[in-house]
Computed example of a mutant assay.
Amino acid sequence: MKIPQNKIFKLMKTKAGAPPGTLINTFAQTSVHESTRLISVSDDSNQDIIIEDFEKLPSRLWPEATNWLIFTGLGDIDKLEHLGSVFQINPLIIEDILNAEHLPKAEETDEFLFFVIKILTRNTETDSFETNHVCFLLGKRFIITFLQRNTSLFDNFIKRIKTVKESPHHYTHDYILYQLIDIIVDHYYLLFNQTDEKLEEIEEILMSDQSADMTSMIQQQKRELNFIRRNILPVAEAVRILLKIESAFIKKHNRTFFNDIADHLQHLLSATDNYRETITSLYELQMMNYSNRMNNVMKSLTIIATIFIPLTLITGIYGMNFTYMPELSLRWSYPAVLIFIVAGGIAMYLYMRQKKWF
């Protein structure tokens, strides 16, 4: 679950005036350390083990093989610091890993390539979005994935990479980084498909039922779309920077794959612009339905008033208390006036129907 924004600010305020690299754990109340998993793959074998003692971790890395470490749960700052000391990770990087609100970014040092991204998932019970803070640390002998909490998003890829006969030698650390980012970006497409379905549903309701009030749903879709865009835009910028700096950690023949991710992200950003136009059109359609309903009400009231105004005039005339009104003494005057009133009302009604005013 996401930490409330005011809680984040309260936690981060304690850092004011502290030296750079001071660790503030924004996951302390929402995440616990679950496991540290090491997956090593070579051309003819693989290992998948849980690491308990970080001191022995460097010796468990296979030489001349792909080593992928998955650190799940960022609530234990001591374990994260311990892992950082084993791999000599800069405290500033550890600080970014522990910052739940850190925007996606790409950064390269002499020892590592650091990449931050968010996994976005929709909570079906609350119909709201949740974020999973994910960081990738690419070194020369390994790649480390830091997960805010466990996710099944990478399970199929783990099965595929562990199947030796399907794991060619090109499963290098930078290629794994590409695969993991690509899986997350592909997951963004699922969110857009859900958004597309909801917008189509809203449009169908508005077109079929002018009395439907979909304003709250339209506003919700607008908020969700803005939330998705705020998380995708920095990822696109991070990938662009990754390609621009010509990272030494990414092999030349694998750069094409990252270009493909950049294309996908650009397509998603273009889709957000299209969806924003669709939401604007739906809002205008909702306002038009409101206007049409109001016009129908006003038309009905106008027709009723138009029919009764002359009838009211007649009854008003004969309601005046003049002493001398000759027709009042006639026996047939009362039924004659009633017949005239009814006939006049019917005539005006038929005239309006003929003109198709209603």
Rank of each mutant, 00 (worst) to 15 (best):
N150D: 15
V239I: 14
N67L: 10
T36D: 12
T306N: 07
I70P: 01
F192T: 11
L269G: 10
K56M: 07
G316K: 12
L113R: 11
I3W: 01
T126S: 14
A336K: 02
V41C: 02
N6G: 00
E201H: 08
I279Q: 13
A262N: 06
L120V: 15
L282Y: 06
T280E: 13
D78T: 13
P234N: 01
I93A: 10
T215G: 02
T151D: 07
I143H: 08
S281L: 14
S31C: 09
L301I: 01
H264A: 08
I245T: 06
A248S: 12
R230H: 06
G21W: 07
P168Q: 05
T151M: 06
I24P: 08
I346C: 09
Q47A: 11
L225F: 00
T306H: 04
K198T: 13
H264Q: 13
D273C: 05
W62K: 14
I51C: 03
N99L: 11
A106V: 09
S31L: 09
Y334R: 11
I304H: 07
Q47S: 15
D209V: 11
M217N: 07
I49K: 03
F340Q: 04
R255W: 01
E224M: 11
N90C: 11
C135N: 13
A248L: 10
F54P: 03
I241D: 07
E203A: 11
E327N: 01
E130S: 08
H170D: 15
